[in-house]
Lab assay of single mutants.
Amino acid sequence: GSLMYASIFGNVSAIIQRLYSGTARYHTQMLRVREFIRFHQIPNPLRQRLEEYFQHAWSYTNGIDMNAVLKGFPECLQADICLHLNRSLLQHCKPFRGATKGCLRALAMKFKTTHAPPGDTLVHAGDLLTALYFISRGSIEILRGDVVVAILGKNDIFGEPLNLYARPGKSNGDVRALTYCDLHKIHRDDLLEVLDMYPEFSDHFWSSLEITFNLRDTNMIPGSPGSTELEGGFSRQRKRKLSFRRRTDKDTEQPGEVSALGPGRAGAGPSSRGRPGGPWGESPSSGPSSPESSEDEGPGRSSSPLRLVPFSSPRPPGEPPGGEPLMEDCEKSSDTCNPLSGAFSGVSNIFSFWGDSRGRQYQELPRCPAPTPSLLNIPLSSPGRRPRGDVESRLDALQRQLNRLETRLSADMATVLQLLQRQMTLVPPAYSAVTTPGPGPTSTSPLLPVSPLPTLTLDSLSQVSQFMACEELPPGAPELPQEGPTRRLSLPGQLGALTSQPLHRHGSDPGS
């Protein structure tokens, strides 16, 4: 009898404990919600809404976190579960008819179910419309201010047509639940991603989709105040780019002037030289400038040598048109050559190039014969006009050509200096018209024969001689050997007369 009593008592207590286990969990969670309300000092109306929603959600799901349970299964099984949970929507909604099984599984994985109690606001006026909503159960109302403009029910759709707008718009009203509602919502990016994977279904979906109420604000059109608020930074940046392009296009129409201050000032006329910023005076940081632009901040801005204009002085008759350009485009679109090309026009420029290279940067340069637009006047290309890779490749080509020119210049200078040193070592320090008596009659020769300089066969020296023939050397430049009979510069000019005159010897006659 005691054994029977113990078994009955144990079973009854276990049954009672299981009955009250759900209630215990409910009270535990309710205590957490109330502690949250007390800690954050939530006001009474919002506090009442929180408690009511918790009670309804507990009775609806029995305190089970559906998302946590669903995430515990593998992905393939999750797709089947989501397809079952959203079967009513996918079967009865017209846009989803005719979709393949794979497309429906992908869509079912992207849908999220939302449960809303009465009085809950789903979308506020001015919120971004980031999702498309399908009503599965219940009814909602749409308000503009305090005026109800629409009441939607089961199988209705609200949001915005995503295929017509590249960016999400703003809501033009509040969406509030009238009863307990079940909503299926899919985010904008998720829907577009699935439709991109199934393009054959995309056309059918957009053609058959009928949005019951379009929440997009109709005033959000390009150029409206609301649109400016939504895309303020983007609009200002776009206007700045367009104004920069218009100014650079105007600059290219004036090829007669070359400016070292950047493309923003290349198009300024002579009357605007004294102004601080020219056409860019209202925004000094709008356009890029070269490193020399920092010198323009000092006094005497109108007389600054940074602004270059072609000189009108005539060229000498024998002067060549100019050196070879550094870039391939210089032959086609440049009416002034790079300062480095002028360094190779003569030997005198070679000796004085490194010492006063900055001073020569603004000297007169030889002109190319074609009066085409200036290379320095070409505006900086924006990322939309020329690819970045093209600019980098041009810079690399320019750097390689500069290296080759520097190597060639160093070799030419070394060769010229070597020839000058050899000339100085071969010439005796001094010569006299009267020579010392020699031991015999073989001493009648006034000077030792001097062998002429070897013929220069280097390509670089031939180019130097060509430049010497075309360029007029300055007075202080050293002379180079030329073709024809060679003669030492330090010898007297009348050596031929010395050989014809008898030598005057000093000596005593033994017979006297």
Results as ranks from 00 to 15, higher is better:
Gly232Asp: 10
Ile221Pro: 10
Arg216Ala: 08
Arg400Asn: 15
Pro314Leu: 15
Ser460Leu: 06
Leu417Arg: 08
Ser500Tyr: 11
Gly226Tyr: 12
Trp206Ile: 05
Pro339Asp: 11
Pro387Tyr: 14
Leu365Tyr: 08
Gly323Arg: 09
Tyr198Glu: 03
Asn172Trp: 11
Cys181Lys: 01
Thr499Glu: 15
Gly359His: 14
Leu426Phe: 14
Lys250His: 09
Ser460Arg: 09
Pro510Ala: 06
Arg388Trp: 15
Ala177Met: 04
Asp190Glu: 08
Pro310Ala: 12
Ile142Ser: 03
Glu231Asp: 13
Thr455Ser: 12
Phe244Glu: 14
Val147Met: 12
Gly153Met: 10
Cys368Gln: 13
Ser271Asn: 07
Pro429Cys: 12
Leu164Gln: 09
Arg301Thr: 06
Leu128Gln: 12
Arg301Phe: 10
Asp459Ala: 09
Leu458Ser: 12
Ser313Lys: 09
Arg408Gln: 08
Arg238Pro: 07
Glu472Ala: 11
Gln423Val: 07
Ser348Ala: 10
Gly264Ala: 09
Asn155Ala: 04
Val148Asn: 03
Arg385Asp: 13
Ala430Ile: 12
Gly346Val: 11
Arg238Asn: 08
Ala414Pro: 12
Arg216Lys: 04
Ser410Asn: 15
Ala397Gln: 13
Pro481Leu: 10
Val194Asp: 01
Thr372Cys: 10
Glu324Ser: 14
Gln361Arg: 09
Ala166Asp: 12
Pro478Phe: 10
Leu473Gln: 07
Ser508Arg: 08
Gly440Thr: 06
Pro383Met: 15
Asp296Gln: 04
Leu448Arg: 13
Leu164Asn: 08
Ala477Phe: 13
Asn172Arg: 10
Ser272Ile: 14
Pro439Trp: 09
Ser293Tyr: 15
Leu405Met: 05
Asp251Ile: 08
Gly346Ala: 08
Ser224Pro: 14
Tyr431Gln: 14
Gly223Phe: 11
Lys250Asp: 13
Ser235Asp: 12
Leu375Gly: 10
Val464Ala: 06
Gly138Ser: 01
Gln482Ser: 11
Pro320His: 15
Ser136Met: 05
Pro279Gln: 04
Gly496Glu: 09
Ala469Ser: 10
Glu141Arg: 03
Thr444Cys: 10
Thr212Met: 05
Val149Cys: 06
Leu405Trp: 15
Pro454Met: 09
Pro279Asp: 14
Gln466Ala: 08
Gly269Ala: 11
Tyr180Asp: 11
Thr435Asp: 09
Arg246Gln: 10
Tyr180Phe: 07
Arg408Ser: 08
Ser293Pro: 13
Gly223Ile: 13
Gln361Asp: 13
Arg265Lys: 11
Gly145Phe: 06
His504Leu: 11
Gly281Ser: 05
Leu426Gly: 11
Gly438Ser: 11
Asn377Arg: 14
Gly233Met: 10
Val175Tyr: 03
Gly267Cys: 12
Glu160Gln: 03
Leu192Cys: 06
Asp203Lys: 08
Gly233Asp: 11
Gly322Val: 10
Pro310Cys: 14
Leu503Arg: 09
Glu331Cys: 09
Leu209Gln: 03
Leu480Asn: 10
Glu253Ser: 11
Gln418Glu: 08
Pro325Tyr: 06
Arg388Cys: 04
Leu191Trp: 01
Gly138Pro: 02
Val194Gly: 02
Pro305Ala: 15
Leu209His: 03
Ala477Trp: 05
Arg236His: 07
Pro199Asn: 04
